[in-house]
């Protein structure tokens, strides 16, 4: 059908039989991301509905501080830049070493995000603000850890993708994989911005 190519990434030569495959894979992955976004949408809606349901537990305003989330935001936004560099290296140089290096940096930033996020969650738990305390905290403990779980899966994916680039080099399977990985990673950024705005900044108002 359409001869349109996904822009922004070198997918081998003009007549590479893989390019059509990548086209479909990326398209399908976008649909998958949309369905995942709907899951987050339902969870966000739940969080908003549950905001007043604090029972005898702390409210959002009492609980949240901006320091941790801002560190996490910085780490995650930086990781989006570094994964962008990884893809630029793939596109322009097809340099295995540089690509994996940037992937490694992204991985570390993601791991830093997870560390910070886990740290603040454990802090809440120690303060008696666990998910069992109130419906509001249940919703918080669904939304934020669900995102963190996505980041953890993303980190695993980065590791696998880096290994594949090392082993296989750049063929349509690995480059297509990198393309989807970057879509996924940017998607996590967007969701995180939602969390930052709705959960943390929302609590400040």
């Amino acid at each position: 059908m359409s001869q349109a190519r996904h822009p922004g990434l070198k997918l081998g030569h003009e007549h590479d039989p893989g390019s059509g495959e990548v086209e479909a894979l990326v398209f399908g992955f976008w649909i998958f991301m949309m369905s995942d976004l709907l899951i987050f949408g339902c969870v966000f809606a739940t969080y908003v509905v549950m905001l007043p349901q604090v029972a005898d537990g702390p409210s959002a305003a009492e609980l949240f501080h901006l320091r941790g989330p801002l560190i996490e935001t910085t780490l995650l936004l930086a990781s989006s830049v570094t994964i962008g560099f990884a893809l630029l290296e793939t596109k322009h140089r097809a340099d295995k070493r540089r690509t994996t290096l940037w992937l490694a940096v992204t991985f570390l930033l993601g791991a830093g995000f997870l560390f910070s996020s886990t740290h603040s969650l454990l802090g809440h738990l120690e303060n008696g603000a666990g998910p069992s305390r109130s419906a509001f905290l249940s919703a918080y403990w669904l939304l934020v850890p669900l995102h963190a779980l996505h980041v953890a899966i993303g980190c695993l994916w980065i590791a696998v993708a880096a290994a594949q680039v090392r082993i296989r080099g750049f063929d349509w399977v690995t480059t297509g994989g990198l393309l989807r990985l970057s879509i996924y990673w940017h998607f996590l950024d967007i969701v995180w911005i939602g969390i930052l705005s709705v959960v943390y900044l929302g609590a400040m108002i």
Partner: peptide, 20 residues
């Protein structure tokens, strides 16, 4: 969410602690 209520004592749909 129902599973979290049942397994990890969350309170999304319970009759107490503000569940709806």
């Amino acid at each position: 969410m129902l599973a979290l209520d049942r397994y990890l004592d969350f309170h999304f749909f319970t009759t107490d602690a503000g569940g709806i």
